[in-house]
């Protein structure tokens, strides 16, 4: 695939408006084949809308690009054949059985050896014994696994996963991510939206979007380095209680408690030092300068970006 320079996704200037509101604004993204990209951003920032544009479910108002070397606008049906899209809301048929759902998908993609493939998939999932159970009766974690199995059944080259692990327990999440890495190892490209920082850190690169605008992209370390954020960590006697006092103080962009620890961040190192000065002496608290975490950066990015929804 040299035609597209080894890029699974190469789009630029995507715009989508609903009722005159720009929900996705000038969005550009390049993802090399076989990479896992994490798609982060607050609720309503346009992640789902972007994913829908990439798999041909929504037509962009502006912008162009390719998925798997195929034109986003004119070759959407071909893109669909090689893409697996997992919707944010579970969208297999709950009144059909597990097997019926998988068979339906296999037929729609006109796959050969359908029977064997569906059986393999059921066994791989560990749902072979329960294949005749109605899908609606599965628990949340099982539904997510089944949805993933359904969207990789036709062996797509690109996976678009929309918050696939929302509401799933940690063990199931870990297994889910192991599976994603296995798939990427086979050369499948993955763009996955999530709100979990640990998941973001398991991605090769991260794309951060807020209110329709792309705010940061790169590896976790790059994003942290590029943001030029200064962070102090405080721990000790009731350090976390200071969060509300510091918030809104000049020079403080964010003050967040993590358990009994406190992270205070700001863009101006001097102003930040002045802001925390009153709490440094005479308190039972230890302060130390630290590198900001991804979460510090994202909270900062979100609060700093213009909220066009207000």
């Amino acid at each position: 695939m040299s035609a597209n320079g080894g890029l699974a996704i190469d789009v630029s200037g995507l715009v989508k408006s609903f009722n005159g509101r720009r929900v996705v604004d000038d969005f550009s993204l390049r993802i090399p084949e076989g990479k896992i990209f994490g798609f982060l951003g607050p609720n309503g920032s346009g992640k789902t809308t972007t994913l829908r544009m990439l798999c041909g479910l929504l037509t962009p108002d502006e912008g162009q690009g390719t998925c798997l070397g195929l034109d986003l606008r004119s070759e959407a049906p071909l893109i669909k054949r090689q893409t697996g899209y997992m919707t944010q809301k579970f969208s297999l048929y709950e009144d059909l059985t597990i097997k019926e759902n998988l068979e339906f998908v296999a037929r729609l993609y006109e796959m050969d050896n359908r029977k064997a493939r569906v059986e393999d998939s059921l066994k791989g999932l560990g749902l072979y014994e329960r294949r005749d159970q109605q899908t609606g009766t599965l628990s949340g974690g099982w539904k997510q696994r089944l949805a993933l199995a359904a969207c990789i059944l036709h062996e797509p080259r690109l996976l678009l996963l929309d918050e696939p692990t929302a509401g799933v327990d940690p063990k199931a999440r870990r297994e889910f991510w192991d599976e994603i890495h296995t798939l990427a190892g086979r050369g499948i490209t993955v763009l996955v939206s999530t709100h979990y920082m640990d998941e973001a850190e398991r991605c090769h690169e991260i794309v951060y979007i807020a209110y329709g605008k792309l705010l940061a992209s790169g590896t976790a370390d790059e994003i942290i380095a590029d943001t030029e954020l200064y962070t102090w960590r405080a721990y000790g006697h009731e350090a976390d209680r200071l969060a509300s006092k510091l918030r809104g103080t000049e020079g403080v962009a964010s003050a967040v408690a993590f358990g009994s620890k406190l992270h205070v961040s700001g863009v101006d190192a001097d102003a930040l030092a002045r802001a925390i000065a009153p709490y440094r002496d005479g308190h039972d608290i230890t302060w130390e300068e630290t590198t900001p975490t991804l979460e510090d950066v994202f909270i900062h990015l979100t609060s700093g970006s213009k909220d066009n929804f207000a």
Partner: peptide
């Protein structure tokens, strides 16, 4: 209404 249309449309039907 159930959201299954989104999944259906993402497939080549």
């Amino acid at each position: 209404e159930r959201g299954t249309m989104e999944n259906l449309l993402s497939m080549p039907v």
